[in-house]
Design a protein around this nucleic acid. Structure first.
Lengths: 223, 223
DNA sequence: ATATTAATGGAACGTTGTTCCATAAGATCA
DNA sequence: TGATCTTATGGAACAACGTTCCATTAATAT
């Protein structure tokens, strides 16, 4: 009997979409978005780029699969179903935090529309809106605002992480942003100047949640 | 007197940042984001890429300048200051529509943080929130939700426009999205399935405005 | 007229995503 | 067991891109 057990004990170094996606995630996490190329990936997997293309259609599919993997894992964990409001906050915060750790996920979410990761977020939100008693007519709009707000913040945070040379002091980074803001004419940009003062001691995550709460308040007020 | 009048009657074909940005906008609008390269741009301006680099640092600066140009022109036009609520809606709708016409602006807004275009939107919103009577403490958070929601929608619409092969029938496009949604397991994605039915006769702009109204309601309810 | 600076345009460089293809490994069948 | 066919591999080659370099020209100042 030469036939090995189906798909079990093949060569241990066999390539697979899973191994490729895992390696891609490692590169993205440790060296950033720009470090992932088919050459670095092939080097890490000790193969050639042609072999990778046998398992993956193109770079876009690879990035989508990587982002889906991370988001699915995150959303699966954070389930709090006592209060639908809390459930929505937990989903939103989960996405926010996952992008804090893997900023490239934010880039991918805002670049590629209607991928599975987005639908998962959408479903999680929508189901809880129903539980909240939002009428069916209004559910689509309500879930859409929440999702787009989350995607907007995701994109911005990913973009910020892209410029941040890697672990630059956070307060120095905030200060440099505030400085850029105050360079504009105060007469033309009074609000920007007023807010620039609040930037240094400013908590991204707290402000993100405040946004979620404002939207939830809006959804519940228009019933 | 050989000296010509300062900066007036130079060679009529002289390059300038303005001419370069204008040409870039034309290419982006007529042939899409992927069509803008330093080669196509040089060809259109009948010059070489080196000459362009004398006026523009890199492609990022070029795109930022182009987006700022378009957004500034749009926001300058749509001023309605009878009601601050209407003013905010006008700004949001202005950005939405400008991205409908120039989708690449949406890509740029979500990719490059804290550029002038974003600050202009932020300032327009913030000033009107103040006029609305939102307490100063809450203005930052309130302006931030609105801005991030707008940016989220901007990014998604830009991404959609990128996939749309150019002027494909809109209803066919919506139908294909709904089809993709319903491919997922109905048991796992009940909300997505419910909403997929509403996609075909669905107005993007209307839903966008509904989102703005929900957020405004939330802002006004938590005072 | 001459020297200096500003601006030009096109060749060349290095990197990228992707394709191609000769070859090897695994499975199937005589 | 050996022959054949499919699956999978890895590295060379390609086209396109952003960017840099540099010899040359136009405009200005001396």
């Amino acid at each position: 009997m030469r036939t090995r057990n189906q798909r079990t004990d093949r060569r241990t170094d066999a390539l697979s979409k899973e191994r490729i996606v895992d390696a891609a995630i490692e590169i993205l996490d440790t060296d950033g978005e720009s470090a992932l190329t088919f050459r670095t990936l092939a080097a890490r997997l000790a193969t050639g780029s042609g072999a990778i293309y046998w398992h993956v259609a193109d770079k876009n599919e690879l990035l989508t699969a990587a982002a889906n993997h991370i988001v699915a894992r995150t959303l699966g964990a954070s389930v709090n179903d006592a209060d639908p409001r809390e459930g929505i906050r937990a989903i939103a915060l989960g996405v926010f935090n996952v992008i804090d750790i893997h900023p490239w996920v934010g880039t991918q979410l805002s670049r590629e529309p209607w991928q599975t990761a987005m639908l998962q977020i959408f479903e999680g939100i929508g189901g809880r809106l129903r539980a909240l008693g939002v009428p069916e007519q209004a559910q689509f709009d309500a879930a859409s605002v929440l999702l787009n707000y989350i995607l907007g913040v995701a994109g911005q945070n990913a973009a910020n992480a892209r410029l941040l040379p890697r672990e630059v002091d956070r307060s120095a980074f905030l200060a440099s942003i505030a400085a850029r803001w105050t360079q504009h004419d105060p007469a033309e940009y009074p609000f920007v100047h007023q807010v620039a003062a609040q930037i240094p001691n400013h908590d991204d995550q707290e402000q993100f949640l405040a946004g979620i709460n404002l939207i939830l308040a809006g959804i519940e007020s228009t019933r």
